[in-house]
Design a protein around this nucleic acid. Structure first.
Length: 291
DNA sequence: CACTTGACCTGTCCGC
DNA sequence: TGCGGACAGGTCAAGT
């Protein structure tokens, strides 16, 4: 579910919907996913306004005017959904996928002064939210080791190449999924970019010709940008900040298209298991481990 | 050390 | 219809 384009889509939506709103209440009962004490919450969340919504890798950073940040990871099934008075409740036009809120997956509810709400739902409870002083976010273990942002201008081919070469003896898909190599790629966009570059997911990084590696660099940026344009991929759970689905999946070339024809050559796409993950490839376009 | 596998949870889908 | 098992987009700890 949420990889870089999905998290970025949520960020854009939240920035539009909640910046400037004042928090007057919070409900949570999820020690594992939201470990902060009630006294910290009372002191640094209640009465605060939302100052900014940022993203690093797949992590959302909701900055408050108290100098604290709600650091949020959606993991597999997390959702951050805003409900204003105009779209309160079920049966609202544009068919929210979420329905009436809160629902049984709602783990945290923020209430704003104007009567609107922000809900953190997470069916599988893998996600988390934690309150930290804004200045400490950069010192979290994950932030210290996470790799470059692929959509920043500084993500040149030579940066990409040197990052990939840190794990040159591994299969390329496992390396793309490694957040210390690149920030924000997950299973969907790894499959999509590898198909675009015509590289087999199990090819060792060191065996990939430079011209293919250049193509992979290009494809990563291409699929991530295209997906943000389409509002991300909704496979099952993912929704944006308004509870609506994304449409990238309709444009996907291999992901979730097993038994359908490859858009390039017509060969039937197959689904296998690589690096412990469901993996979609065209056996003709991505023929062998070294190509 | 580098790399792979299992655990974390809940829900859904598929085959018997 | 009911039940067991496999599987799901992420990340970390533990294992080889």
């Amino acid at each position: 579910m949420p990889e870089l384009p999905e998290v970025e889509t949520v960020r854009i939506g939240l920035a539009r919907l909640v910046i400037g709103k004042k928090i007057v209440g919070i409900m949570f009962d999820w020690p594992k996913g939201f470990p902060n004490s009630k006294s910290d919450v009372d002191a640094f969340i209640i009465g605060a306004s939302i100052k900014d919504v940022r993203r690093r890798a797949k992590v959302l950073l909701i900055d408050l005017t108290t100098g604290y940040t709600l650091v949020t990871h959606l993991k597999m099934t997390g959702q951050l959904v805003f409900r204003g008075l105009e779209n309160f409740g079920a049966g609202h036009p544009n068919e929210s996928l979420v329905g009436l809120l809160p629902n049984k997956s709602t783990r945290v509810t923020l209430s704003f002064f104007d009567g609107s709400h922000l809900y953190f739902n997470d069916q599988r409870k893998f996600g988390w939210m934690k309150l930290l002083p804004t200045g400490e976010v950069q010192y979290m273990a994950f932030m210290q080791k996470v790799g470059p942002e692929p959509l920043e201008d500084s993500f040149t081919f030579s940066v990409f190449e040197s990052q990939m070469m840190r794990r040159k003896n591994s299969g390329v898909k496992a390396v793309l999924l490694d957040q210390t190599v690149l920030a924000g790629i997950g299973n969907i966009y790894a499959d999509e970019a590898l198909w675009g570059a015509k590289i087999h997911p199990e090819a060792k990084v060191s065996a990939i010709p430079k011209v293919r590696l250049r193509k992979l660099h290009y494809e990563i940026i291409y699929v991530l940008k295209l997906s943000i344009e389409k509002g991300g991929s909704t496979d099952r759970n993912y929704v944006n900040a308004e509870g609506k689905r994304g449409s990238y999946i309709d444009f996907a070339r291999v992901f979730r298209r097993e038994n359908l024809p490859c858009p390039h050559c017509g060969t039937t796409i197959i689904k296998t298991r690589v690096a412990g993950r469901g993996t979609h490839t065209c056996p003709k376009c991505q023929p062998c481990r070294i190509n």
